[in-house]
Each structure stands twice: as C-alpha cells, then as structure tokens.
Amino acid sequence: MPVSPPTPRIPSLNALRAFEAAARLGGFALAAEELGVTPGAVAAQIKSLEEEIGASLFVRSTRGVTLTPIGQRALPAFVEVFDSLGQAVRDLRQDATPHKVHIAALPALAQLWLAPRLPMLRERLPDVDVSVTAMETPPNLKRVPFDLCLFYTNTTPPGGVQLGSEEILPVCVPELARKLTRPEDLKTVSCLTDIAWADDWKLWAQRVMPEADFSPDGPVFSLYSVALQEALSGAGVLMAHKSLVLHHLRKGELVAPFKTQVPLTGRITMWILPSRHHIKILSDVVESLKQSGSVF
C-alpha cells in the first residue's frame, strides 16, 4: 500500500519575523516596537522557534541578548528574505492602488510644513491620493507600507532629497516683543520649549549671549504644535524652527525680537527606497514638494 508521510511543517511566520527583527535590531524590545507587539510576545515566539528547530538562537543575560553562532549564520538569509517579502508587498500595493501615496513624517513637519503644502499637491497632482502618518522616528521603508519619509536628517539617506535648511530663532507675539530690547531680557519672560528640541535654547544662547549663563524658564511641551499655539496666544517666547513658523512670521502674527538666527545641521529631507525611484507618482510628489520652497 502507498505510504504518505506527513509533510514537514514550516515554522510559524510570526516566529521567523520575531527572530529576524530581534537579531537585526539587537534586542527583543526593539523588535517588539517594530512589529507592534510586546517584548514578551517576541520572546515567546523566539522560544517556540528554538524549541521547534532544536537549537538556541540567542544567549540571554541580564544585559540583554546576543546571537548564538547558529543565529549569526542564519540572520543574513532571513534579512534578505523579509526584505524581498516587503518589496513584493509594496509592488502588490502599488499595482492595486497606483494613485495612493503614503508619507511617514515627523509630527511637527507633518502638521506645520507638509499640511500647508497638501492643497498645492492636490492642485498640481489631482489624481494623487496622499495620506500622512506622524511618527517620532523614521521607519524602515523596507518593512512598512509607507512610500516616503519626511524628517530632519544630518546626512541625506540613499534615495533622499533635501527640501530645505533650518534655522532657530526666538519668536513671540508683537506685544511681547516690545518688552524685549536685548537678549538678556529673555530671563524676565516665559520661554516655551519643545522637549524633543530642548537644546535649541542653549544652542541659540551660546551664540548670542555666551557670557550670560542663560537657562530658559517656562513650560515644556511634548508636541511642538502646542508650544506654537501657546506662543500665538501670547503665553511666552518660543525657540522656533523657522520653516515651521514662517507662515506666522509673514502674516505678522509672530515676530522675531532679535535678528540672530542660528543654523542647524539637520535639514528637511524626504526619501524613498532607491529601488522605487522609477515610480513616477512618487517622483512627482517629491519634485512638487522640492519646488514648494518658492511658493511658501
């Protein structure tokens, strides 16, 4: 009689993804953040995989995890496989919805730089449907369903285009500016700070009043847009990124009480995977935003 042995089972895809992410990123917590699960779930998936293959892939210690020799040898192939899977998914999405573009952006850039330019994009590219997701750190475009990234970067990533330089300067409403005749007067008013850019005050003060030992006194915000609204309401002086407040400066809603602007090394940058430069709709969005500097 014929023999029909059971087909060997391939390990769980989730377990393989957990291993690859943890091995590539160097830890269970970072893998969990990328995969959108808990570190405990990553650990459980990897333990299940190790039990199934009959070998340890990580050495656990109080200081974290490191790859075993078996894990080290396996990692390159799994990185290549999941990169290829990501490319296949992107190609599938592109074929299914060729008019859609999804941008991942720093929250402040999404709200205050990109959002004002979306009407211009719709006018220039009426057939393009642009979605925006705000996040604090750039995603790995090889692994997530985003087409473009918009962040401040010190160096231009592969496939990137610099959209503008950045300077910092104090800004406030005109009524408050009249009380500020010299930089040292900032010690007498509320100074508004964005927690992600808390060092901006120090950077500007070191350039303008290096002997003053200045430290800003005022509220700290986790959202730059909230700090900006407080400045617009007259609550204090904001150390501003010029590109994010330029609209309010031109309208006179905010003014710069002092002339000195300090350039930052980080520039507004948009990038795309180099392998996707041939997709015209993506190149058109990047080019339109690049040209928007002459409009805004």
Score class of each variant (00 low, 15 high):
residue 7 T to C: 05
residue 9 R to N: 09
residue 11 P to T: 05
residue 16 L to N: 12
residue 16 L to M: 15
residue 17 R to F: 11
residue 18 A to M: 08
residue 23 A to M: 08
residue 24 R to E: 07
residue 25 L to C: 08
residue 27 G to H: 12
residue 28 F to A: 14
residue 31 A to I: 00
residue 32 A to G: 07
residue 34 E to Y: 02
residue 35 L to F: 01
residue 36 G to Y: 10
residue 37 V to E: 04
residue 38 T to M: 09
residue 39 P to N: 07
residue 40 G to Y: 06
residue 41 A to P: 00
residue 43 A to T: 13
residue 47 K to M: 03
residue 49 L to I: 06
residue 53 I to L: 12
residue 55 A to D: 04
residue 57 L to I: 00
residue 61 S to T: 11
residue 65 V to Y: 09
residue 68 T to H: 12
residue 68 T to V: 00
residue 68 T to R: 12
residue 75 L to V: 05
residue 79 V to C: 08
residue 82 F to Q: 00
residue 84 S to W: 10
residue 87 Q to F: 09
residue 94 Q to C: 08
residue 103 I to V: 07
residue 104 A to I: 02
residue 105 A to Q: 05
residue 106 L to T: 10
residue 110 A to W: 04
residue 111 Q to H: 11
residue 111 Q to I: 02
residue 117 R to H: 05
residue 121 L to C: 08
residue 124 R to A: 13
residue 127 D to E: 09
residue 127 D to H: 14
residue 129 D to R: 15
residue 130 V to S: 08
residue 130 V to R: 10
residue 133 T to W: 07
residue 138 P to Q: 11
residue 145 P to W: 15
residue 148 L to M: 08
residue 149 C to P: 06
residue 152 Y to F: 15
residue 153 T to Y: 07
residue 156 T to P: 09
residue 161 V to C: 15
residue 161 V to W: 14
residue 164 G to L: 10
residue 167 E to Y: 15
residue 169 L to G: 14
residue 171 V to A: 07
residue 172 C to V: 06
residue 176 L to N: 04
residue 177 A to G: 02
residue 183 P to S: 05
residue 191 C to S: 10
residue 196 A to I: 00
residue 196 A to T: 04
residue 196 A to S: 13
residue 203 L to W: 03
residue 208 V to G: 03
residue 209 M to P: 00
residue 218 G to P: 09
residue 223 L to S: 12
residue 225 S to P: 03
residue 229 Q to W: 08
residue 232 L to F: 01
residue 234 G to V: 01
residue 236 G to C: 01
residue 237 V to H: 02
residue 237 V to D: 01
residue 238 L to V: 06
residue 238 L to R: 07
residue 242 K to E: 11
residue 243 S to P: 00
residue 243 S to Q: 02
residue 245 V to S: 11
residue 249 L to T: 10
residue 252 G to D: 01
residue 263 P to T: 03
residue 263 P to V: 01
residue 264 L to G: 12
residue 265 T to S: 10
residue 272 I to W: 03
residue 272 I to Y: 02
residue 276 R to Q: 14
residue 280 K to Q: 13
residue 283 S to V: 02
residue 286 V to Y: 13
residue 290 K to Y: 14
residue 291 Q to E: 14
residue 292 S to R: 12
residue 293 G to L: 08
residue 295 V to L: 14
